[in-house]
Structures are given as C-alpha cells and as structure tokens.
Design a protein around this nucleic acid. Sequence first.
DNA 1: GAGATGACGGGCT
DNA 2: AAGCCCGCCATCT
Length: 103
Amino acid sequence: MRHFYEQVYELVQQVPPGKVVTYGQVAALLGSPRSARAVGYALRYLPRGTDVPWQRVINHRGEISPRFPAESPLIQRLLLESEGVVFDENDQVDLKVYRWQGE
DNA sequence: GAGATGACGGGCT
DNA sequence: AAGCCCGCCATCT
C-alpha cells in the first residue's frame, strides 16, 4: 500500500456532501485509531485545487481547526454551509446529525 | 537516520 | 462547558 496520506485522501473523497467526519474517525476507519494527528498532517500537504473534499474533515468538537492562513477556515465554513451543513452560534456543527458513519 | 512538525484526541482541572 | 497539558503517529527536512 501507498502512504498513509493517500489512504486518507481516498477515504475523504468518499464522504458525501452535507456530511462531515472527524480526524480521529478517519484514522479509525483506516485502522489506526491513534493517528488522528497524522490525518491532519496529511491534509496540510494537500495542493490547492485538489479534488479531495478536505472541508468535510473537522475536529472532535465539531469545529473547524484554526490554521494559517486565517481565511482558510472561513472558506471551509462557506463550503460546508453551501452543502447544507449548519453551524451554531459557537461556530460548531452538531456531530450527532452531520457525522458520516462510513460506507 | 534522528529530530522536528502539526488542520488531533482524551482526560483532568 | 471550555481550556490546558501530554501522549500519539506518519511524514518531512
């Protein structure tokens, strides 16, 4: 098999619009429950214009993880809202509703 | 090949 | 409920 990262990309591409997954969830689905951090690292190296719906990956609190540049999280939120995902007044989504359970 | 990096998560305060 | 600290893991330099 290829890099763990590539597996991350393939899995993320399977997430349907309007749904989200947490980093830990992605890691678990790949067989490494403790690799959540590595998942985030994988997305960090995504080139712009990739076909991977990286915006559907958020942290275990249902929030968009902060990062550089600061506009990135904003774009991510817009993309999710355009897919039907609703954020509450605390900029969080209800994971009980939007979490993608897997295939 | 060793040390640094980081878009995380869980547990405790 | 929110924030802080510490441990984890795969990749990068």
